[in-house]
Design a protein around this nucleic acid. Structure first.
Lengths: 275, 275
DNA sequence: GCGACTTTGTGCATGGGTTCACAAGCAGTT
DNA sequence: AACTGCTTGTGAACCCATGCACAAAGTCGC
């Protein structure tokens, strides 16, 4: 059980969404089809990323038995400002009750639907090395609406081996298996050299969403959504900020413990039920 | 993270940074010591992230023997627009030669210095599970100016085991070991429950840069730079975009939004190539 | 039923980042 | 030496995003 460590309210440490934006709007032609879904309205990319974070926090609150949560509390727990949180949520329409807060369960369902997590996405993973196994065994997926349905590798030594409750299959079966399994998301955790080819295969298999852990930027058709996570990049950004910090804070780092005790960050709350 | 070659995507998972206000502005008193470093000027967060990406591509070009590269080529290989790339590089001062392009070696060194990678950062990693081992074995770190100097875990079964060329030590030795090893960056790849405690320890050990793979948002003092990578968030964002794509792109509009599609990822050797 | 209190939802100002378009500058050629 | 061709570097407009401050809207207490 997650320890809580609450009380440390901490003002939201400034959050820099490092974001990059992207024009997600429809550029040229106004989308022909009329308004499809209420939640399909254009939601800023940065907001989408944070919605996922809120969702995780809400999951924790649910386990804890919390019924109602205020924007202030949820924001503190998520590491963002309350105003930003409310604005983010407002893209989904009215979600809370004024003077009270948000119903945890209801809000959770709302965000899940908005993110499309209620579709039960099926994920296939290619490259069952250390990282691949870590991902396959990552419980976070299952708890958040994803189910791992297929593992693939090109190494004969790995094919046939059981990982979790799945058996590794040869990558040559990828195209066919994707169709059979009705996979919607593909994850690439192979060595760099193989990444592009695997991506091509996933595209041929009809997948439109790919998450790659290869640092190389892969080339895919426009209709395929592609996200890349480069672990080394994260470290380098950290390195830069390190240099920046040591420059600007040469003197004793004062532990700002008592920093503005935020009044109501603590879980104290009339509406919250603590088991 | 970053984007792919399409215009979508982008970046960065939740990033928690130090207090906003100004990156390093000149709010306080003029620093006694003269101008610190030329590259200490304030560089946008988003730009820093991309610089890391450019660096990787430049590494590939170096191995390939490319001497000169144009902004157009480098941008295509990095998955961004050429204008953006030039602007990003301009924060480091003049780097190229007009009418010619950028000297690969020189530009690489320039970015490395700007990101502080020439300091030989020493990294300690806590939590040697699947993910931890994947990170420890990730060659990308060594090739990019980082050296893994310590591995820690709380599981007695893991302590003492060799991983790569290091031996796992018990997490109780963390504080002392960090000082001895002169570590500057800490990586947390433990289960969620232990993340906050490990973070506290790393802070006590004097580290000012932490990279966490735990989805929970950790609480650290202001002077500590903290980045978080949540793998599930990446998938959820993908899920959202999936819904968006399938809705709005029933047909196949090959609208090219961003920069022109470069034929292949293979950089044509239009530029100078050393045999 | 009414007033006071609490919290959501949002209009608006501000700032950062992305993009466009073009002047500036260098190499090679005439 | 001047011209041509190409590429960098950047000024400026646009757009997204953040944060503030407040009105709207509901609950609680009397």
């Amino acid at each position: 059980m997650t320890e809580t460590h609450q009380t440390h309210g901490s003002v939201a440490p400034g959050v820099t969404g490092a974001v990059g934006q992207s024009m997600v709007g429809s550029p040229a032609p106004s989308v022909a089809g009329a308004a499809p879904l209420p939640e399909s309205r254009d939601i800023p990319q940065a907001t989408v990323t944070r919605l996922a974070t809120y969702l995780r926090v809400l999951g924790v609150l649910t386990e804890r038995g919390t019924i109602i949560v205020s924007s202030e509390e949820l924001a503190a727990a998520s590491g963002v400002g309350s105003a930003k949180l409310r604005k983010d949520l407002s893209f989904l329409g009215p979600n809370g009750v004024r003077g009270v807060g948000y119903d945890v369960t209801r809000l959770r369902a709302r965000i899940e639907r908005a993110l499309g997590l209620d579709r039960g996405h099926k994920v296939v993973l290619v490259g069952v090395g250390n990282l691949g196994q870590a991902l396959a065994g990552y419980g976070g997926f299952g708890r958040r609406g994803f189910s791992m349905v297929g593992l693939f590798d090109s190494d004969p030594a790995r094919v046939g081996a059981p990982v979790g409750d799945l058996t590794v299959r040869h990558v040559d079966e990828l195209e066919q298996a994707c169709a059979e399994l009705e996979a919607t998301i593909g994850v690439i955790s192979t060595p760099d050299e193989a990444a592009q080819e695997v991506a091509d295969r996933l595209v041929r298999a009809g997948l439109r969403c790919i998450l790659s852990f290869s640092p190389t930027s892969l080339d895919v058709p426009d209709h395929v959504e592609m996200r890349r996570v480069d672990l080394a990049v994260e470290m380098q950004v950290l390195s830069f900020n390190s240099a920046r910090n040591t420059e600007s804070v040469p003197t004793a780092p004062r532990v700002r413990i008592g920093h503005s005790a935020v009044p109501s960050t603590a879980p104290r709350n009339g509406s919250v039920i603590a088991p």
